[in-house]
Design a binder for these strands. Sequence first.
DNA 1: CTTAAACGCAACTTCAGGGTTGCATTTCAA
DNA 2: TTGAAATGCAACCCTGAAGTTGCGTTTAAG
Lengths: 112, 112
Amino acid sequence: MSPSASEAKVERARSVFSALGDETRMGLVARLSSGGPQSIAQLTTRTDLTRQAITKHLDVLAGAGLVKDSRRGRERIWELDPTRLTEAGRTLDQISRRWDEALDRLRKFVED
Amino acid sequence: MSPSASEAKVERARSVFSALGDETRMGLVARLSSGGPQSIAQLTTRTDLTRQAITKHLDVLAGAGLVKDSRRGRERIWELDPTRLTEAGRTLDQISRRWDEALDRLRKFVED
DNA sequence: CTTAAACGCAACTTCAGGGTTGCATTTCAA
DNA sequence: TTGAAATGCAACCCTGAAGTTGCGTTTAAG
């Protein structure tokens, strides 16, 4: 893989992490994950936040490619799109693997 | 696993995501991942930021359990600790898996 | 012993993110 | 047809994160 493609993947992962770093958004993802597609009004219940606040958070999640919306009458239905989620998880794996290799190189260097 | 333990794991993951959501910190992790343990002064080079700014970012990463430090003379050496990294990756997997199950339940429900 | 490197601490500034309020628009339902 | 539900849009507020500057402390090096 070319360096730029790898960096693009890291950048996408970073955008995912930035989106998931907020407690409210993490809760929304968890809710959509276990509860299935839901409208904004539904996602606002059992929350001490305003509908507009929830809308903003959903927009952020959409910007990171974590959720997608569709219209159903006057409602706007949001659902999870796990593609970026799994990709970000793999990126984490790659980073820790690269770290293990760096450790190996370090040990070899110290032994010399 | 008890619900509270699961929620604690999600909360730890969220703290990791919050730390990795920043571009500078993501760069620091990448640098430590491929370059091995380094001092603050080293990590500041090739950056348009101040040493104090880098120090703050490293403290945030340490707060999420992603890095650990040790002293070597007048230097402070930082290195990656991939434990939380892999744990957060597994949490992402679990969320997307839970989403797949929710989709299955939804299909069954629609078919009825 | 003296100088400079590497770092710690604290005060200060700036600005974007998270949140609200107010109002307009679309659509369902009786 | 008319009221209420669900949402969109925009202006506004406010706190904390990110960054800097200034100065003091420790330690290596000559």
